[in-house]
């Protein structure tokens, strides 16, 4: 009996140790990111494609998209997230961050203090970005205004309040491979990069499992709206009949093929993407149509 208990305790310690090891933050290789030289002009394109301001600008609908004061709230099954201040303010924003800290935050979901970020922040998509692009993004964001609005703490339910558990979540769901694979045209590849690494379409348009991981078998097939009633529409599958022209026109104008006008959270997405080159919107459209054919 005594031996059994000892063995049980040993197993428990091993399990706890394994969980601790699995939940440790895993940053990028230093050598990969320290020497990168960011170009702010190129970074603006990344900023628009990645949709940073959709979540990080102030809550008012007409707030300045370049003042990243935070404060928007995002309800979910796990509680309510509040987007933090990521302006250049040295205390309330990210003004004191190094380039390496920034890239690890964006591409690995790790704070400068080594804590895990919640995947409401789509580093789960940004992990597929080129580090050079995120260095460009850093250079651009360091040119944006400073704002002194303090970030709000998230309002989450236990046990989601324990950030270390996110390390286990990352072990399960943080993956850097593409959702759409197989032979792609160069245009589809460009579109896949923009959509899967930056614009993170799949984060809302793909359903999630009980733990909040994306269900890749149903990529872009639509999902319940996490922050309210209604659904995020399917942009793949049998009911989706848009053409490439339709998708590109929608992203540049906010008009559906039936000439309904965009609203809700997608209005922010269109507000950013419409500032990209038409060739990039056409590439996203080519990718969306390619992804829509997956699993048919």
């Amino acid at each position: 009996m005594h031996r059994f208990l000892l063995g049980f305790a040993a197993l428990g310690i091993i399990a706890a140790g394994t969980a601790w090891a699995l939940s440790a933050p895993r940053p990028l290789d230093e050598a990969q990111i320290t020497d990168l030289q960011g170009d702010p002009q190129a970074g603006r394109t990344i900023f628009l494609a990645a949709g940073c301001s959709s979540c990080h600008r102030a809550p008012a609908r007409d707030s300045d998209p370049l003042i990243l004061s935070g404060g928007r709230s995002f309800a979910s099954d796990f509680g309510t997230f509040h987007a933090p201040n990521i302006s250049t303010h040295p205390d309330h924003g990210i003004g004191n961050w190094s380039q390496a800290e920034f890239i690890n935050a964006v591409m690995r979901g790790i704070s400068p203090q080594g804590a895990h970020y919640y995947p409401a922040f789509p580093y789960t998509s940004y992990i597929r970005a080129e580090p050079q692009d995120i260095a460009d993004l850093y250079a651009y964001m360091m040119t944006l205004p400073s704002d002194a609005t303090p970030s709000l703490p998230h309002d989450l339910d236990f046990p989601f309040t324990i950030r270390r558990t996110l390390g286990l979540w990352k072990t399960l769901f943080l993956r850097d491979d593409w959702a759409v694979t197989g032979p792609l045209t160069p245009q589809e590849e460009r579109g896949r990069y923009l959509a899967e690494a930056l614009a993170h379409c799949g984060e809302c348009h793909t359903p999630r499992n009980l733990l909040g991981g994306l269900t890749r078998a149903e990529w872009h097939r639509g999902a319940p709206n996490p922050s309210g009633t209604g659904r995020i529409p399917a942009i793949a599958g049998p009911g989706f009949d848009w053409t490439e022209f339709d998708v590109s026109a929608y992203l540049s104008s906010g008009l559906t093929p039936e000439f309904d006008v965009v609203g809700g959270t997608m209005a922010d997405v269109v507000g950013n993407l419409r500032q990209l080159d038409k060739a990039d919107l056409d590439a996203i459209a080519a990718y969306i149509l390619r992804a829509a054919r997956e699993g048919d």
Binding site: R61, R231, V261, A267
Partner: peptide
């Protein structure tokens, strides 16, 4: 005109179900 439609849809229209 599209902008006027959107200004309202952004605030006052729910996601489609």
């Amino acid at each position: 005109t599209a902008g006027a439609c959107q200004a309202c849809h952004e605030v006052y229209r729910e996601e489609a179900s």
